[in-house]
């Protein structure tokens, strides 16, 4: 019989760590702002809902240098706990600020990273959240996403070489999402804290963290 340590050592390993955003200015979000509500504004490349009342959801993350032991390929998972009358859409992963309020996309496997809504990821996040003794509050749900093909219609798995090449000696990046009304109305979204789940399609590693509307000193 294997010890707990041996079992853990046998598991495939992929590690992703949340941190504060790295690149102020993308989509007109200042530094250390994770949640911000905007009225309709001018078009910005890659911005999905600039013509609607929308709430930005943004965090930074780090993929530390790692061996990716036991991993042949995987898709990244993310889920956000949002209100039931909101939907969330994903932007690519940004590794720098570009022109104006635009971001510069991280490429993996020769293409920008895209996401597709994935109900299974939302369900997985809900179950894992419950395992920690917490419940999704009434009126909220986990909107889940997997990395996707460029047309955002099917799940895409990155192979080990693609992942190793992108991570290199360690990678930091920003992830942006935008929540909007499922039925667009002329009403601002009152900002609220958002719990994020990060995981993947292969390993048991996952993390939950909360994006506060106002980031406290010393956070993260």
């Amino acid at each position: 019989m294997k010890s707990v340590k041996q079992k853990w050592d046998d598991h495939p390993q992929f590690i992703i760590r949340p941190r504060l955003p790295q690149f102020p200015g993308i989509f007109d979000l200042p530094a250390d702002t994770c949640i911000a509500s905007h009225a309709p504004h001018e078009h910005i490349t890659e911005h999905l809902h600039d013509h609607l009342y929308h709430m930005h959801i943004r965090y930074g993350f780090e993929l530390p240098n790692q061996t990716l032991r036991g991993i042949d390929k995987l898709s990244l998972h993310v889920a956000m706990m949002v209100k039931v009358d909101h939907r969330v859409d994903c932007n690519p992963v940004f590794v720098a600020r570009g022109k104006g309020y635009e971001g510069i996309c991280l490429k993996m496997a020769g293409q920008d990273i895209h996401w597709t809504p994935d109900e299974r990821v939302g369900e997985k996040a809900t179950k894992l959240f419950a395992k920690t003794g917490r419940k999704v509050p009434k009126g909220y749900y986990f909107a889940g996403f997997s990395t996707s093909s460029m047309d955002e219609r099917s799940v895409y798995e990155y192979n080990r070489e693609d992942l190793l090449r992108a991570i290199g000696n360690g990678l930091v990046a920003d992830q942006h999402f935008q929540a909007t009304w499922k039925k667009p109305v002329k009403k601002e979204i009152e900002p609220y804290d958002v719990v994020i789940y990060l995981g993947d399609s292969v390993t048991e590693y996952h993390t939950f963290f909360r994006l506060p509307v106002v980031v406290p000193i010393g956070a993260f």
Binding site: L48, L52, R87, D151, E152, R153, P184
Partner: peptide
């Protein structure tokens, strides 16, 4: 009217 869709998905 606007809808919040983003594409073929």
């Amino acid at each position: 009217t606007y809808i919040p869709w983003v594409g073929y998905f």
